[in-house]
Amino acid sequence: MIKINNLSFKYNKNSNYILKNVNLNISDKKISIILGNNGAGKTTLFKCISGILPINEGRVLVDGLNVSTTPNRILSKKLAYVFQVNIESNLTVYETILLGRNPYINFYPTKKDHDIVSKLINEFNLGEYINYSFSSLSGGYQQKVMIARALASNAETFLFDEISSNLDISNKLFIFSLIKELKSRGKSIFIALHDLNDALVLGDYFYMLKDGIIYKEGNKKIINKKNINELYNIEVEVKNIEGVEHVIYKKNL
């Protein structure tokens, strides 16, 4: 569960506010999705929630813990953050997923840590890549490894920043079904997405972020022609095809 009260953020004193008086309530057993342009402040918001950026104005609570006063190690047991990494790493796939157990490991990983990692490797079909270095994998597989790593921490709350962009269709659907399963296990999930149709498939509750302000929030109904036009400045049609809402982009290229 994430509760945000009056969060405002700027990178330094003289710059403009990236987030302006944001109030959010990410509840359990729901998939909440945040939509917005590049630069709207989605990633900044996620970094504030996960304690990466210091919070000076407002308050963020994760499972009741105040992010700015809780030590990283305690927070990292509650919250897992998945984002795109573009990093050369010679750690193997196994070692990378094991990193998710880091908050629990003092020096040597225990049998429990290895059991959790092994189970995830089987679930994610990563068996043949166990001893491959992370850098040698394709972007999609790196993404999968990073998601497995996040699950290894047994957190209650998950932040996913643009996770589907590197994945092919089958891997994307695999990750989506996994996220839905997390939801059914009672976890709270907060996702930043660009693809509106992906958002409609996954989401239960939606936030629209524009220039650092939560400009609309609500269920599927807020993804409509008018709001999308105001948010992204594009023309769309939202059609219900066989019971599923679809966003159709109208611009001719």
Partner: peptide, 11 residues
Amino acid sequence: YYGDELAISLG
């Protein structure tokens, strides 16, 4: 190895 941000989020 995976950057400051991931390290912080891993505690």
